[in-house]
Design a protein around this nucleic acid. Structure first.
Lengths: 200, 200, 200, 200
DNA sequence: GATGAATGAGCATTCATTCAT
DNA sequence: CATGAATGAATGCTCATTCAT
C-alpha cells in the first residue's frame, strides 16, 4: 500500500515540477496541458487525476513556492538576532529580493501576483484563529513591540505591494535601474513608511 | 478622398471601442477576434488591416486610455494652483484614483499593468529629447523647485508602483479595506517617501 | 460462504439500482460507468466483474423492469375476474399505462423500446417450448376461447406497438393531448382492432 | 457573388449527404464529426459554419428526408383518384412503407422517430395559420368529407404511431413476420380504427 | 480597401478498459 | 474477489489566419 501511495506522490511531484519549468520558460498561456504531460512522461488522463485544470496547478505551484520563500526568509531572520523593527523588515525584504535575483524564473512566474494576499495565504492558510496567527506573524517579523504602531495590517500591505510591484521590472529588466542601485532608495522609503505609521 | 480616410478612421475607432468593451466585460483571454469583429460589425479580414493581433489592439487601448487619464489629471492640476510639491503629487494621485473608482472596468482592464512604464509612454512616447521632456513633466507635476530632490526618477517610479499596485485590490475588491479608509495611510506614506528623497 | 455470495449479490444489486437512477435522470448517453460506480460506492473494476459494458447493464435493467411491470398487471388481471377478451386486454393496457403515468422516469428509460419484443422476452425468455408458452400467455391475457381469433400473434404485436408508441409522448409530454383524453380513443381503437381479427 | 453562394450550398449539401450515409451505416452515436468532415473532404471548422453539432445536422436530415417522402406520397395520391377515405389513407401508408422497404437505410435512420410529430413538422413547419393548414392536409389525405369523423387529430396520430412503430422491425428484421404477410393485418386494422372514429 | 468563407492545427476533457496490488 | 491508479485514444470545439472575390 505504501508503494502505491509513494508512486502517486511521485507522479504529482513530477507534474508540478514539469509545469513549473514550462510556466517559467514559455509562460502560462503558451503552456498547454499536453505540453506538461508530455514533458512529465505521464498520460494525459493522469493530469486530471490530480488537478482540475491549468490554473489549478498554477495556483498550487504559486502557493508552494511562495511558502517556501517566506519560510526560508523567516528562519534566517530568527537566526539574525536583529532588534530594530525597521532592520528586521528590511532583512526579510532583502532576503526575498536576493532569492528572486538568483532565480528570475521564479519571479517571472509569481509575476504580478506577488501580493500580500499570496504571502498571507502561503503562511497562514485556512487557519481557524486567523487574527491571532496574524499577530504572531507580525511579531515574528517586527519583534515584540507591536504596540508602537497603528494599522499594522495597512502598513504591511502597503510595503509588500510597494516592494513587489517596484522590484518586478527592476530585477527582470533592470529598468529603470539595476537592483543594486534601487535598493538604497527602496530601503530608505520603507523606513520612512514604517516611521510614518508609528504612534506619535 | 477625405471620405475614404474618414471611413477608415471610423472602422478602426469602432474596433477599438468594441474591443475595449469586450476586454473589460469578458476579460482579455476570453475575448476572441471573432467576438470583436462581430460586435463591431466589421469583416474579419478588416481587423488585420489595422492590428497585428489581439495583444496589439490591447496595448494600443491601454496606451490610449492611460494617456487620457493622465492628461485630464494634469489639466486639473494646472487649474488647482497648489504650490507644495507633496500636495501636487497627492492631487494627481487622488484624481486618478477617483477616476478608477468611478469606472472599475477601466482599472480591471489596465490591470496590474498600471505601472510607471505605461504612464511614461502614455505621456512622452517616442520623443527625441527624452530627458528634457521628462524634466518638464516632473516640473509640471511637482512644481518648479526640482533641485530640492535627488533621484527624482526613482522617487516617481517608486510612488507610481506603490499606488498602482496597492490600490488595485483596494478599489476592485475593497480588500484589505475600502478605498476611503486606505487613502489616509497611502497619502501619509507618499508624503513620507517624498520627504525621504529630499536633499538633506 | 453464504456471506460472500450474499455480498456479491448485494454489489450487483447496488450497481443495478444506481444505474437505473442515473439512466432515468441523466439519460443513458450522459451516464458514464464512472458515474455509476462512484454513486454505487464500488470500485471501477468491480463493474466489469458483473457487466460487459453500459449497454449490458441497461438491457438487463429494461428486462427486469418490464418483467416486473407485466407480472404485476397479470396478477391483478387474475384477480379481476373479467370474461370478455376485449375487457381483459384493455385491463392490462390500462394498468400498465397507469404505472407509467405514476413514474414517468420508468417510461422515459424504457423509452421507444417499449415494444412487443421487450415484453415477450420479459415474460418467456429463452424457453425451450416457446410456442406452448406463448399460447399459455395469450390464454392468460385473453381468456380461454382463443379459437375465435386468427393470427393472434399479429394482433398482439400490433396492439402492443400501437399502445407503446402512441402513449409515449402522450404520457411524457401530454402531446397531442393528455392521457385521460386519449384513453377513450385508444381503447375504442383496441376494441375495433380486436374485432377485426375475429374469425368471421 | 453567385459563385460563392453556390459553393456554400454545395459544401452544405456534401456535408448532409455524407452525414446521411454515415448515420445510416454506422449509426448516429458511432459517427463522429471527424468522420463526417473527413468523408466529405472539408475542414473541421467548416462543419461548424453550417451546423451546431451532430444532433443539429441529424435533425435537419430527418426533416428533409421525411418531407421528401411525404410529398412524393401525396403527389401520387393526387393522381390516384381514389374517393373512399380508407382507401386514400391506406394508399398513402402503402406508398410510404414501400419506399422504406426499398431503402432500409432511410428507415433505420429515421428510426423510432418515425412519429406524427415528424411528419407534421415536415409538411407544415412553422406556419402561422396552423389549424387551417392541418385541416387542408387532412382534406388532402382523406378527401373532402371530413365532417363524418370526430377527433380527426387523435385518429391520425394513432394511425401514424401504429404504422410507424409496428413496421419498423417488420421491415428491417422481418420480425415477427415479413412485410407482405403483415400488410393485410395492418390495413384491416387501419380500416377498423378509421371506422371506429366515424360519427355514429 | 473590404469581405467572410474556409481552413486545420490545436486544445481541454472524457472515459472505457486494464492490471498490479 | 475487489480495488482504483493509470492509461491514451477519441471527441467536440475554437480560433487566428489566409486569400479569392
Amino acid at each position: 500500500m505504501g508503494k502505491v501511495e509513494e508512486n502517486k506522490q511521485q507522479k504529482q511531484e513530477r507534474l508540478l515540477d514539469t509545469a513549473f519549468q514550462l510556466f517559467t520558460t514559455k509562460g502560462l498561456t503558451k503552456t498547454s496541458i499536453s505540453d506538461i504531460v508530455n514533458n512529465a512522461g505521464v498520460a494525459k488522463g493522469t493530469f486530471y487525476l490530480y488537478f482540475k485544470d491549468k490554473y489549478d496547478i498554477a495556483n498550487k505551484l504559486i502557493a508552494r513556492k511562495a511558502r517556501h520563500l517566506c519560510l526560508q526568509a523567516l528562519e534566517k531572520l530568527d537566526r539574525a538576532e536583529l532588534t530594530d523593527p525597521g532592520d528586521r523588515l528590511i532583512f526579510i525584504v532583502d532576503d526575498i529580493l536576493n532569492q528572486f535575483q538568483k532565480t528570475h524564473m521564479l519571479l517571472r512566474f509569481i509575476n504580478k501576483n506577488l501580493s500580500w494576499g499570496i504571502f498571507k495565504n502561503a503562511l497562514i492558510r485556512g487557519s481557524e484563529d486567523h487574527d491571532r496567527e496574524m499577530a504572531e506573524l507580525f511579531r515574528r517579523i517586527l519583534g515584540d513591540d507591536l504596540e508602537h504602531w497603528e494599522h499594522l495590517d495597512a502598513m504591511i500591505y502597503l510595503i509588500v505591494e510597494m516592494v513587489g510591484s517596484s522590484c518586478y521590472s527592476v530585477i527582470l529588466e533592470r529598468d529603470p535601474m539595476p537592483l543594486e542601485d534601487f535598493k538604497p532608495h527602496l530601503y530608505r522609503s520603507i523606513r520612512a513608511v514604517v516611521k510614518s505609521f508609528q504612534k506619535s
